[in-house]
């Protein structure tokens, strides 16, 4: 599958990363090279093979329903870019 400039613009938007006009061509070239490498696995016959998501074949552990966390918002917000009255501030969210 050949990547296009449109693909780069689409995924850059999905990933919320600005790629400037000049950058698009550079990224397209790099990704095309990398996908050239990736395409090598397409030839493999994987019919009937179960996809492998985890290194170990184990099942999920669950925790008890207990409140173990205390309020640390002052500490956590000491490293926040912008806060006011305990809230994280962002440019207006339009709905």
């Amino acid at each position: 599958m050949a990547l296009s400039r449109d693909d780069v613009e689409r995924i850059a938007h999905l990933a919320r990363i600005t790629v400037d006009e000049a950058g698009i061509d550079r990224v397209l070239e790099e990704l095309t090279g990398i996908f050239g490498l990736i395409e090598r696995m397409q030839a493999v016959d994987t019919a009937g093979i179960e996809p492998m998501s985890h290194a170990q074949d184990v099942v999920l552990r669950v925790r008890e329903d207990r409140v173990t966390e205390t309020d640390q918002h002052a500490l956590f917000q000491s490293i926040a870019p912008r806060v006011d009255a305990g809230l994280y501030l962002v440019p207006k969210v339009i709905e």
Binding site: R82, D84, A85, G86, L87, Y88, L89, V90, P91, K92, V93, E95
Partner: peptide
């Protein structure tokens, strides 16, 4: 997201 005006911004309560 709280949309009351925080100096033109939205406030996020998680």
């Amino acid at each position: 997201s709280l949309h009351e005006d925080f100096r033109g911004m939205s406030g996020i309560d998680l």
